[in-house]
Amino acid sequence: MILAEKLTSMAYWSHFVSIALFALGLLGFLTRRNALIVLMSLELMLNAVNLLLVQIAMRTGTSEGIVLVVFVITVAAAEVAVGLGIILNLYRMKKTVDLGSFRNLSG
């Protein structure tokens, strides 16, 4: 593909958007100390996956990717539901959601 064609194609750019979103999520996970923001970063990573899957499904003309997206969304919702429950429980005990305060286990 010549450069001009690449730069005007949606598929080309959505790859970058997906990579950027995933990297942002990973970065957020590694650097943030707030449990809620960590959960949000994880969501961001999964949404990057969804974007990539939809784009590839469009390009290859297969429906498998779209089906996988539905499941990824469902799993993400379940994960956040459990995660929020745990965070709520930790907040009740410690009155904070800062990861630095969760230091009972030496790890």
């Binding site: 995933f22 999520g25 990973l26 996970f29 449990a35 960590v38 994880l42 990573m45 999964l46 990057a48 996956v49 990539l52 899957l53 590839i56 990717g65 996988l68 990824v72 799993v75 994960e79 459990v82 995660g83 745990i86 965070i87 429980n89 930790l90 005990m93 410690k94 969760f102 009972n104 286990l105 790890g107």
Partner: peptide, 26 residues
């Protein structure tokens, strides 16, 4: 609180590794 902490650690590591995995899959 130890049990809860274990659970939260498990969740965070689990979510990241499964996120990496599904990205690899895609």
């Amino acid at each position: 609180s130890r049990s809860n902490e274990a659970s939260f650690k498990y969740l965070v590591y689990g979510a990241v590794s499964s996120g990496l995995m599904i990205y690899g899959i895609s």
